[in-house]
Design a protein around this nucleic acid. Structure first.
Lengths: 144, 144
DNA sequence: GGTGAAAGCTAGCCGGC
DNA sequence: GCCGGCTAGCTTTCACC
C-alpha cells in the first residue's frame, strides 16, 4: 500500500470505467504492472467491488428524508422485530442503531412527499414499540 | 424505461464489472441490444457513472461517527463560513443542513477514537457560531 | 516492474422483424 | 423502431525477460 496504490484507488473511486491502459498511464505504470496492483487490491478486499452510480430519481427515489426514531420499548424481542422489518423495507436506504438518543437514525428514499406520508403511516408508525419519530428534510447538501 | 432497463440498472448497481455479454445474457437480450440500452441510460443521465467501492478501513477511515450540530448564530456570514470550511475537511464524508433541529447532520470518517478527538477539538469545535455538538457512534448498522 | 503475443470483449454496420 | 448477427479494433491478460 504505497503512493501508487492510493492513486489507483483514487482514480477508480471516481471512475471505474477507466480502461486499464489509461489508468496505467495516469499512475505512470505499464498496463500489466497496473493490472497486477488492481487485482491484488481486489484480492486483499481493499477494492470491494464495482458499482454503477444510478440517479435515484429514475428509480422513484428522488425524495430523501432523514428520520430519527426513539423507542418506548427496547426489550430484545421488540428490537429484533423492528430491525428485521426495517431491513425488509425498500424505502429504507440506510438504518443504524445508535448508542444514545435517538435510538435509530435512518435515511428513507421515496418518490415524493405523498409517498413519504404513505410510508410513514402504513409502515413506520405501525412498527411495535415506536415512540417519537422526527422526519427531517434536508435544506442543503453541504457535502457528499 | 421498461422492465429490462430496470433489470440492467439493478445488475450494474450491484456489479458494474460485469461484461456486456454476461449482462446481456442475464437480461435475456443480445449483446448489441443490451449495450445500446446501457449507452442510452448513460446518455440520459440515469447511469451517472461507475465507481469502485473502496474499503474505508484501508484509507484510514474505518471509524465512522454521526455528528449533530446546532448553531448559536445562524446569520448568513456565519453559515457560509462554516459550510465552506466543512466542505474542505477530508474527515467529513457527508454534511446536510436540515430544516429543523439539529441544524446540521454530518457523517465523519477517521481512523479511530483518537483521530476523532483530534478532529473534534482542532477542527469542529473551532468553527464560529457552533453550539451543542452531539457525536453518536453506531452500535449496529441495521441496513445499508 | 516491463515487453510481447493470444484470447476476449466492445462497438459499429448490416439485414430482418 | 428495435433486435440480432457479424466483423474490426482495442483491451485485458498471461508467460517470460
Amino acid at each position: 500500500m504505497d503512493r501508487v496504490d492510493r492513486a489507483i484507488l483514487d482514480h477508480l473511486a471516481k471512475d471505474s470505467s477507466l480502461a486499464n491502459v489509461d489508468l496505467a498511464d495516469r499512475v505512470s505504470l505499464s498496463p500489466s504492472a497496473c493490472l497486477r496492483r488492481v487485482r491484488a487490491l481486489e484480492k486483499a478486499g481493499t477494492i470491494r467491488g464495482y458499482r454503477a452510480d444510478i440517479d435515484p430519481a429514475a428509480l422513484g427515489k428522488g425524495f430523501e428524508v432523514e428520520v430519527m426514531v426513539e423507542l418506548t420499548h427496547k426489550d430484545r424481542a421488540t428490537v429484533e422485530t423492528i430491525e428485521a422489518r426495517i431491513a425488509d423495507m425498500d424505502e429504507v436506504v440506510q438504518c443504524r442503531r445508535l448508542f444514545g438518543v435517538p435510538d435509530y437514525l435512518m435515511r428513507v428514499a421515496v418518490a415524493d412527499v405523498e409517498a413519504y406520508e404513505a410510508f410513514y403511516m402504513a409502515k413506520l408508525a405501525e412498527l411495535p414499540g415506536i415512540g417519537r419519530v422526527t422526519s427531517q428534510f434536508t435544506m442543503k447538501l453541504v457535502k457528499g
